[in-house]
Design a protein around this nucleic acid. Sequence first.
DNA 1: GCCAAAAAAGTAAACGTTTACATTTTGTCC
DNA 2: GGACAAAATGTAAACGTTTACTTTTTTGGC
Lengths: 341, 341
Amino acid sequence: MKQVSIKTVAELAGVSIATVSRCINEPDRVREKTRVRVQEAILQTGYEPNTIARSFRRGHTNLVMVVLPSVGDPFFTGVLRGIRSVVDAEGYSLIISETQFNTMNADEVGAMLVTRQADGVILLASIFPFGSAVLERAGRRAQPIVIGCETISAALAGFPSVHIDNVGAAREATAYLQAQGHTRIAFITAQAGSMLTRDREAGYRAAMEAAGLAVPEGWVAEGDLSLDGAIRATQALLDHPERPTAIFCGNDEMALGALHAARAAGLDVPRDLSVMGFDDIRYAATASPPLTTMAQPAELIGERVARRMLDAIEAGHATNREAEIVPHRLVVRDSVGPPPS
Amino acid sequence: MKQVSIKTVAELAGVSIATVSRCINEPDRVREKTRVRVQEAILQTGYEPNTIARSFRRGHTNLVMVVLPSVGDPFFTGVLRGIRSVVDAEGYSLIISETQFNTMNADEVGAMLVTRQADGVILLASIFPFGSAVLERAGRRAQPIVIGCETISAALAGFPSVHIDNVGAAREATAYLQAQGHTRIAFITAQAGSMLTRDREAGYRAAMEAAGLAVPEGWVAEGDLSLDGAIRATQALLDHPERPTAIFCGNDEMALGALHAARAAGLDVPRDLSVMGFDDIRYAATASPPLTTMAQPAELIGERVARRMLDAIEAGHATNREAEIVPHRLVVRDSVGPPPS
DNA sequence: GCCAAAAAAGTAAACGTTTACATTTTGTCC
DNA sequence: GGACAAAATGTAAACGTTTACTTTTTTGGC
């Protein structure tokens, strides 16, 4: 069956295809009488403009690509919600690519851009190697990349970015644990090599050093960013010869795992062990016990990132390449208490 | 700066554009010597094929649209992972549209298809009104819709679908609660009008009726599919003059909320109250207490749905319009026990 | 009713690819 | 080395829009 194109409509309405196109895109420029005739023809034929042809002609797709570790991570879900709220309003759709916490090949991202599949790319996950290919190409085309993750942006001065001060926030979280009396504080990080919790680990270490506290070998455990990984990491920590009295987790998902592992080991949180999270995902408040955590404004980050992306697309290049720092906030609930005496 | 097109490459390599195109798409059909010359020209110019032009010419986008309530719902995250695993391998990308648990306007879905923005649509959320427009148009174009949710497919005989037997599964879950000795079993459903838990509610009611048990007014509470909604619903249930001894939740997210509400009310689960979930999301096993739930094979559903979508795209029409039923499975953990005496 | 200006509509090219068909080159066999 | 088939390459059209430019029609003032 043949596609009904603008030509079909034009013939039925007895006008030229240009007029039909104008009826759709700038109705003010055509006479009322013709307009209704064309409208009728459109209805009658069931015509819908062919998006591909339109994109082709216009040179853009109205598609924004988002690269993130996983849509299932509640933190990224929040960021995504923010992104969606702004791009939706402007008629853009989202192509979502998940790295599953691996490092995405930069060439894939570059290809996406250079290949014009998307009008821009929002990077919430680390890609590798950063540098030459992507930068050069994206630059040459003036196609926008906006970043929503500090550790990436650090490596990439010159790209617009939106994020919290991860180092500072982690330092504050650690300091809060110290203020409760803890001196034996462990940290659960992502797998080695991942950049996702790198700054948080740095903040943790800085706070420990500032307080003159040691971080023995083994106190920084790899939790894989997952529930299961964190359960294993917590078990290892509880078996450590110098068992910590508090565990600071690189994200809330892992904190949920730590809570479970502690419970499974017969420990009461926070009486026997304190657990601190990071992100403030929606499950944090209803965890048992409710999780004390460092909140990131996920949705706000998403909104800002998307706004800047759209501005850049509009302008044809990134107008503002600065890093924008959004506020973090300590949320005190019940998973942190004084250390056992 | 002008876009590097196939023409640029052709000129540099001293061949026609057709040859360049062939080098890319059917390299066997060009002589070794020419091929390397063209390859060099491609490298030298940094040429990448323009995806839009290619899609335009080929008539498809290699994009599949997925319409779902929310990517943040762990059940749908699982389905999505399954979908992605199969479409990735075939070079398709995913456009994801979230309805946020509202009913999506069918016209939007129809437009997406008819407009050729995507090669097919996978429907995991209800859209409304189902019928005329979408059906007719999708049918006319032979553009594929595949459904991964029974309550939609029920309304839509004739579209391929993959799902569990929701009614049966809910009946079994309810029967399991009855087998533990419960007679006062409540149900937390989605908001009124939502189709998402409709069949599960039907299964619950059927099991109650089969056992000759009453379902007093107010025992089917609206939980909104969210943590907060379920917390409110649970509170209402606990205040009910005929307080139930077990609560069966339409999905695990709500069961997590119920667990929290019970704890907040000073109740011990399962000693004072039993809670049964549905889906077996990844947080179910680490909840406190670990959640007894009816598992759906989320990832499998995703894989099957995607496979059928791709087959349909390939064939140009849905080859197999049957509903495919995948198995459910009761997962017994610790949130259900005998009723308090 | 005529004229100029403004508004409306039409014509045709262009976007970058792929591909049917035509042409040229290569290889093989005698 | 000539004839012929097969392989390689080239030519040009087509996909459905949008839009710069041109032509036609309408409007309004006299």
